[in-house]
Write a protein that binds this DNA or RNA. Structure first.
Lengths: 91, 91
DNA sequence: TAAAAATACTCCATAGGTATTTTAT
DNA sequence: ATAAAATACCTATGGAGTATTTTTA
């Protein structure tokens, strides 16, 4: 129904995909490991699919996760461009 | 600091930009006029610039608003593509 | 004066925290 | 036995509602 996605969850997602660890992703985003765990779980529920395989301590993208990653990067990059654009604008 | 934008506010923004009325935008999104007003105000504060000129009843985009509109469309469209992509994916 | 937007409140959902438990090395 | 993820629980922020006030055509 709604086309929208939560951008904070997408950022948690791309960070986790890059660093491969909930703990390290949390540090990088200045959040707790718990917050990242919650965010990823909520995103997986929202999209109704697993995004990561938890193979013991190894956290790797599923095929669906790989698929989402590209979109997530584009979305975040576009938000950055929007902010940059409006910042150079006013004043 | 954060590159992120709130996607629900962006949707309120693009809808208002298209229909030119808080009341009509609210109807279209199945929200109240108050909710749209709050959302736009919060977005304007977040970005620290006016997005609409309220000329009496006529609501029109400012130059900054016109600038944001293009980005907002791209962001929402990309979210839609992400969802579509993942939907056709799993089963 | 009759519409439409802004605002004052209220409520509730959820993002995020701490503390703990579970799991795998 | 230890380090990392999941989970239980709690709190606070803010998204969204109703009711009201302000505004302007």
């Amino acid at each position: 129904m709604t086309p929208l996605l939560d951008s904070r969850k997408l950022l948690a997602f791309t960070t986790l995909a890059r660093v491969g660890s909930f703990t390290v992703a949390a540090q990088e985003l200045h959040l707790t490991q718990s917050a990242i765990s919650h965010a990823i779980k909520a995103l997986e529920q929202d999209l109704a699919c697993r995004l990561f395989d938890r193979l013991g301590r190894r956290v790797t993208l599923t095929q669906a996760g790989k698929n989402l990653l590209d979109h997530a990067h584009k979305i975040i990059a576009e938000m950055q461009r929007a902010r940059d654009s409006l910042a150079s604008w006013s004043k």
